[in-house]
């Protein structure tokens, strides 16, 4: 049951939101599960891959595979990065059977956090408490890439004192899209504005998600319009 897990922290969490990484660590400590973290890790290569720079993405992916190859169970607080490792590494190494094999093996052992907690560990109640209304944003790669929708909701529903209110069009993109967000800022912001309107309309005081990239964009817009709605990664909510 208590297999040790290895933390794949995600570059965005590492650099901008270290508190999310610390929350993941606290969750596993609370569960009595040993957690390791390879300190050589940087980025899985997704930013380069999504922009078309496959050679550079391959270079990052190979390094990722070297670093994580010995890990038994890899857990990451980002659906998008797990989607990259689990699904896109195959495209990246389509012409290289040896690396493709290694990538496939790693992909099969890499889990998104809420997926690992609910599907692998069977844990839905982490004993966390939050007194207020929460709305949940479905990140695109988490939802459509990994098929994860119910797991985070179950975890949120078990938080003491919390009321989960579904927003309209939760499954619709927030407009982030990586480099899209600054290359096509007006289109990105128009999509984001719909998301923010739907969040505000729920009356929730907290937005929760499983991907800091979308949440960073949502939070950045909420900050700009002076909203008091808070934004948290699900790990922060669950770690208490």
């Amino acid at each position: 049951m208590n297999h040790p897990v290895t933390l794949f922290v995600q570059c965005l969490v590492d650099a901008l939101y270290p508190e999310v990484g610390e929350a993941v660590v606290r969750i596993f400590q609370k569960l009595g599960i040993p957690i390791e973290c390879p300190t050589a890790q940087t980025c899985c290569g997704q930013p380069a891959f999504n922009t078309g720079y496959r050679k550079e993405a391959r270079s990052a992916a190979k390094r990722f595979i070297e670093i994580f190859e010995g890990a038994e169970r890899i857990v990451c607080p980002s659906g998008s990065c797990v989607h990259m490792v689990r699904h896109h590494y195959a495209d990246l190494f389509a012409d290289d059977p040896e690396w493709a094999r290694r990538a496939k093996e790693i992909g099969a052992r890499t889990y998104e956090l809420s997926e690992y907690l609910v599907d692998v560990l069977g844990v839905e109640d982490l004993g966390a408490a939050y007194h207020g209304k929460i709305t949940y944003h479905d990140s695109c790669h988490l939802l459509r890439g990994l098929g994860i929708a119910e797991q985070p909701r179950r975890l949120i529903r078990h938080v003491r004192g919390a009321e989960l209110i579904e927003m309209k069009d939760s499954e619709r993109c927030c407009g982030f899209g990586g480099a899209f967000s600054f290359k096509y800022p007006d289109i990105s912001a128009a999509i984001l504005d719909d998301k923010v309107k739907n969040i505000v309309a729920t009356g929730a005081d907290l937005v929760v998600g499983c991907d800091m990239s979308c949440l960073m964009s949502i939070q950045g817009r909420l900050s700009r319009i002076g909203s008091s709605i808070a934004v948290l990664h699900i790990a922060q909510l669950l770690a208490g």
Partner: peptide
């Protein structure tokens, strides 16, 4: 382009990996 419509979270003074 990012900051036309939204604010940006600054890079942390100490990365997660450094803290770990």
């Amino acid at each position: 382009g990012w900051s036309i419509h939204r604010d940006m979270k600054p890079v942390s003074g100490k990365s997660f990996i450094r803290r770990w």
